[in-house]
Design a protein around this nucleic acid. Structure first.
Lengths: 178, 178
DNA sequence: GGCATATATCTTGATGTCGAACCGTTCGAT
DNA sequence: ATCGAACGGTTCGACATCAAGATATATGCC
């Protein structure tokens, strides 16, 4: 196929791995999250619902750190969930800047209706790898993610609480960093 | 840390790996793509520019398949690039439905100014893994991506040409599937 | 030739997403 | 007690993104 140019083997290896990482993630995400549309939920909305379901009422800031989203974004997603009556904002007695997000009965019901199938899809998405391979993959990804996160950037996850929301599924696994 | 509930070990393993996959990808993407903002390029815009740079003029459809984006989305991204004079649309002589996207001189200059640093960032992002580990990761991700893509969904990459654009970096590596 | 169907792209409406600017609120140092 | 910095959220503007639906153009089959 005659690759035109580009440099060292190391560069090619890195670029190649990067492509596969991007593609695999895109494919897995699509497979896992697309079906959420049937419940009229986006990935982010599901993420918020799930985080609050597992952990109880959370502030915007906590949610943002868990899902790795900007504060402005959190406001929007919560607005959309609140508009549909799936969550509600509760103000904090002590600190009036804070507003905590809690599931409504409707929200709880919806999440519980959708969650089992979601987990099943996650399992399915990974069923091409056996337990050892999953463990290996997990280890490599953790190193990769850690290094990338450490290297300068970002909102900094949520190391403190040990619970990780992220793009859905999050809190189902309380451990990540261990 | 007492994970509350959830089922089988296999489920936990899959969920855990999914989290790490999402987080690692997010972190790596941020690290690699954020700096593109300095050239006022988004990830998608860079992806289009790069694809066309490597492969020559492409139709919207080809671009969409390479970057795994919907047709509507491709239109928007190209509009934004065209507005800035970085690309131009050329109509096809034989088939008037087709519009091919080509780099302008400005676009070429911009891409060439930005590309080397981009590759360097990709290499950096992966420097926590040695060559063997990268190869292993690559293999596992390919299996994962393939299985997920096969399982029902999607726009179906671009198996035919062998060239893969994707979220940037793409075409720098002509081979992927091999 | 002529119509049904398939293709390639564009449009529309809803959501997500970011970064930056902004507004109350709280807290710390003096 | 006061004032300035830090904090928690919201707003704004620009882009991305998808799913559906609309258009225009090609093609295939009779």
């Amino acid at each position: 196929m005659a690759t035109k140019h580009h440099g060292t083997p190391r560069e090619r290896l890195a670029l190649d791995t990067y492509i596969k990482l991007s593609r695999a993630t895109a494919a897995v995400d699509a497979r896992i999250n697309r079906p959420l549309a049937e419940a009229s939920l986006t990935t982010s909305q599901f993420g918020v619902l799930e985080a609050v379901w597992h952990l109880g009422p959370l502030t915007h800031g906590e949610i943002g750190r868990k899902l790795l989203k900007s504060s402005g974004n959190v406001t929007v997603v919560i607005d959309n969930l609140a508009r549909r009556g799936l969550v509600q904002r509760e103000s904090d007695a002590g600190d009036r800047r804070i507003s905590r997000v809690a599931l409504t009965a409707t929200g709880t019901a919806l999440l519980e209706a959708v969650f089992p199938a979601h987990v099943a899809r996650v399992v399915d998405a990974f069923d091409s790898l056996d337990a050892d391979e999953l463990a290996t993959l997990s280890t490599l990804l953790r190193r990769l993610g850690r290094a990338a996160a450490a290297a300068g950037n970002q909102p900094e996850p949520d190391r403190a609480t040990g619970a990780h929301a992220l793009t859905a599924v999050q809190t189902a696994v309380q451990e990540d960093t261990r």
